[in-house]
Design a protein around this nucleic acid. Structure first.
Lengths: 237, 237
DNA sequence: CCCCAATCGAGAGCAGTGCTCTCGCTTGTG
DNA sequence: CACAAGCGAGAGCACTGCTCTCGATTGGGG
């Protein structure tokens, strides 16, 4: 966790540059072949260097994938944050809708990156701690909107299902990622909404739901409408 | 699509037997290493035969995976159907709850198989038509329960969001897999519920949601409670 | 009945992969 | 200025999917 020494020599700069190039080439390949097929040798070949040289920068293929994972989380997170920031802060419905659509749009535009983030995990690969914070960016945006709703006193439809004490404890850890207030009822619905979001996108992208016959554009629009309604979002203040 | 000729000679039987053995060994390996790492050579090695001999039975690795895919869909489908059949047909809540839990339980017990079915698709691999019917078994069970609810006249909570004509058309193709009646409102909620189900299980299994800190057993119980309530299921007749 | 073709298992081989090790060259530092 | 650390390149190992060829076996038609 020690901070890396600032780049001073030309070598340092060259190293940073090359690391970026490898990462960029990795991403370029990811846009075509999928995480499991990402070839370190192909990256090296495309960069005109020996495959062994890449190991000076990434000790293994998993480390490269790990870096790409972080990059993916950050890019998705940035897109989602931008979508949120693009709406008036008081218009919670629009903010939430924009955020949900941003996730789907990014997933559609970055198929393999999405598969890397939310698809099957690479076997034998455990995500290092540096991935945690980038991975939390999207949930944070979602929860902040909901926290704003709570702060504004926006009501939820009367809860049809009471939340058991055990469930409150189970999802409590999720709350820590957001600053403001967040009721149990909204938190539960938020976690479910996130599951629905990822499930809907995964089913669409991975073609596991009646492939091709459903018009996902209109379906997703409607799903978003329902989620927004379920989360009790309206214009506020 | 021509029916295979019935096994007559000893050779035919041996072929069927060996095909089964290869498939079984493939499944055995799937329980340990994940679809992308499934090695045809390792299967052959374990079976004591030359790797090239396997190609007499499966023309490529993808064909083996395809067969395992079908087997997985059928096994999951059978588990879900059994769970449904284990409850009294009139107790829709119990049926739905049992079915949803059956999916999660199967996924937890068969990690890599679940990843094969609902995780990232194998790059360059397109599922052949023989996978469609097995893949529909779970949705069919879900929709049949909901159709039973509609047939019994069970009401849904007043729809908070009207369903646009376009959305009705978009999800209409889903309805064809079930025989009985099924209202648009319940159909829409069913598709969303399926997304939530797959999303929740994927987030749990693939560790993409606050890994390890959430007690998924209790959380999933609560999710099921909410889905059952949302789908308007109660005892009937 | 028997022969010929179809089928099969085994082995070698090709192209590709991740990864390691060694060998020189370059570069920055004490 | 000398020395050590960092670097790129190449060879090599073990593995993969897949193809081809070569005998051996087997089963059906003349």
């Amino acid at each position: 966790m020690a901070a890396e020494s600032a780049p001073r020599t030309a070598r340092d700069f060259a190293r940073i540059e090359l690391t970026r190039s490898i990462l960029a080439e990795g991403r370029r390949q990811l846009s075509q072949v999928g995480p499991g097929e990402l070839s370190l040798r192909a990256v090296a070949r495309e960069l005109g260097m020996a495959s062994s040289a890449v190991y000076r920068y990434f000790p293994s293929r998993d480390h490269l994938i790990s870096a790409l994972l972080i990059e993916g989380y950050n890019e998705l997170g940035a897109a989602v944050e931008a979508a949120d920031a693009g709406e008036s802060p008081t218009r919670l419905t629009k903010r939430m809708s924009a955020v949900l659509h941003a996730v789907r749009d990014w997933a559609n535009a970055n198929f393999h990156e999405y598969a890397l983030l939310f698809g099957s995990p690479i076997p034998g690969y455990v995500a290092p701690d540096d991935t945690i914070l980038p991975a939390q960016r999207v949930p944070i945006v979602l929860l902040r909107i909901l926290s704003d709703a709570d702060a504004a006193g926006l009501p939820l439809g009367s809860p049809s299902v009471p939340i058991p004490r055990a469930e409150k404890a189970a999802i409590a850890p999720v709350r820590v990622v957001v600053d403001g207030p967040l009721s149990d009822e909204r938190l539960v619905r938020a976690v479910m909404a996130f599951s629905t979001l990822i499930g809907a996108i995964s089913l669409e992208l991975f073609g596991h739901l009646v492939n091709g016959v459903i018009d996902y554009d209109t379906h997703f629009d409607h799903v978003v409408d329902r989620m927004v309604a379920d989360l009790g979002l309206r214009r506020v203040r």
